Simulated assay, not measured.
Amino acid sequence: MSQRLEVVNPTAPPPVWAALRNEAYAAAKSEAALASVLAAVILNHDTLGDALSYQLARKLGDQELRAMSLRDTIEEAYDADPALVETAELDLKAVFERDPACRGYVQPFLFFKGFLALQTQRVANWLWNEGRETLAFYLQSRSSELFQVDVHPATRIGRGVFIDHGTGIVMGETAVVGDDVSMLHGVTLGGTGAERGDRHPKVGKGVLLGAGATVLGNIRIGDYAKVASGSVVLKDVPPGCTAAGVPARLVNCPTCEEPAKSMDHTLAEAVYDYVI
């Protein structure tokens, strides 16, 4: 019986971890001042998970909870749930593919607050689901202090999510964010009062949330919808539609095909004359 051989495309880009290491090696050669940092954070590690646990720990550690102790906790999460690292890889690709200012993988891995805050929340969410709520809240607090991103540990966030800039992002306890969502700075997924229970927005797949967008209450933002910058949304937005204004009104349904990936923030000229 003949054995089928897999055909490898020699022009295909390397996997994320290989590309990240290649970039780090080139950067270390060209910028001697950062060579030790690049070695410690990336080049001295064998896997993306090892490097990411080191990076998060060195950022989040403080006098009360030392970096190496925190790294043990992050590695525990990654060992227990390898999907956390797989999801981080998809998040890293999302930044590279959707942010025109991103030159490669080293930038977000080392410097981008949105990516680092998102990975912190993923670990906090794992701790929350394990019943370790106090440590989960500790990571939320540190993320808020360091990255100006305040996301409850219980918030459920999908894969391939891009948080651009990060500053001022707030997400409540029962908020849900679907796969392939993109959001800019100043986005709020909040409640409308002091009620308890399921009280925060549910954001569908492929949604684009513009800078300063505020979505309040247990409402649904449909798949591939778009919320324009500065808008305040208080009612459901149908799939594939754009909501804009204060209070938000529906604009151009359908909107562009994949707004979160194209990062298309433009609005159609025609506005449907009703409040959602």
Rank of each mutant, 00 (worst) to 15 (best):
M1K: 08
S2V: 10
L5W: 08
L5Y: 09
A18R: 06
A19Y: 09
R21P: 01
A26C: 08
S30D: 11
A33T: 04
S36R: 11
I42L: 15
L48N: 08
G49N: 15
G61F: 14
A77I: 07
Y78E: 11
E86S: 02
P108H: 04
K113Q: 04
F115I: 01
L116W: 01
T120E: 03
Q121T: 04
N125K: 01
W128N: 03
W128E: 01
R132N: 12
E133S: 12
E133I: 12
A136K: 05
S141H: 04
D150F: 01
D150H: 04
V151E: 13
G160W: 14
F162C: 12
G172A: 05
S182E: 14
G191P: 09
E195K: 02
R196Y: 05
V207D: 10
A211Q: 10
I219N: 05
D223V: 00
S231A: 15
S231G: 01
T242R: 13
G245Y: 11
V246P: 14
R249Q: 10
C253T: 05
P259H: 11
A260G: 11
K261H: 15
M263C: 14
H265V: 03
T266A: 04
L267K: 01
L267N: 02
L267C: 04
A268N: 06
A268L: 03
E269R: 10
D273F: 05
D273P: 00
